[in-house]
């Protein structure tokens, strides 16, 4: 019994704080950068809405950016569980499990200025695809692909930096 406690105590002592960035935190910062490096039409509102459809972890990570501003607008993070409010989003993140809904989401958004960001498998439908590249655990990096047609449909324009940094650009 005592050995067990010693064991657990050791485990707790081993808890050295790791420095690298978690996937969620990095994704959140990427989303912020996508928004910053995109030219937005003026629509005269105080808030800039980041929406995450059904991924609480990413929603939490994004929430830490709420003190920031984009084009002078205050960043607001919405963790959505349904499609009802997606027309109010400026950036909409769609995790892989939402892929079945992509067509419905596309038709719902129409030509609204909403930048959609998805995961591998949604290349044809969303504006930006985020992918983890590299071995699963060592040297993994987050890369992204752009779909210019989706930007165009939404009346958005990626700045040159964004196009340059993308791994693949789809016309």
């Amino acid at each position: 019994m005592r050995r067990l406690f010693v064991l657990l105590a050791c485990c707790l002592a081993l808890n050295l704080r790791a420095e690298p960035v978690s996937e969620y935190d990095m994704k959140a910062i990427y989303l912020y950068n996508f928004a910053s490096y995109t030219e937005w039409p003026f629509w005269g509102r105080a808030n800039f809405n980041f929406c995450v459809l059904g991924d609480d972890e990413l929603g939490n990570a994004l929430s830490r950016l709420e003190s920031k501003k984009i084009n002078g607008m205050r960043v607001v993070v919405a963790r959505l569980t349904s499609l009802v409010a997606i027309r109010q989003c400026q950036v909409l993140y769609l995790p892989g499990k939402q892929h079945a809904n992509l067509r419905r989401i596309q038709s719902e958004l129409g030509e609204l200025p909403v930048l959609t960001v998805g995961e591998a498998g949604s290349e044809a439908e969303v504006g930006v695809v985020l992918r983890l590249e590299g071995a699963r655990l060592e040297g993994a990096r987050l890369v992204f692909d752009l779909n210019l047609a989706a930007f165009q449909r939404a009346g958005l324009k990626p700045q040159e930096t964004l196009v340059r940094l993308a791994r693949n650009v789809r016309k």
Binding site: A18, P20, V21, E23, M26, I29, L65, S67, A140, L165
Partner: peptide, 19 residues
């Protein structure tokens, strides 16, 4: 985290992430 969000995007791309 907030320090990270102030880094230039180019540098972020080089950072390793923990999936």
């Amino acid at each position: 985290d907030s320090a990270l969000s102030n880094l230039p995007f180019e540098q972020l791309l080089q950072r390793e992430v923990v999936p």
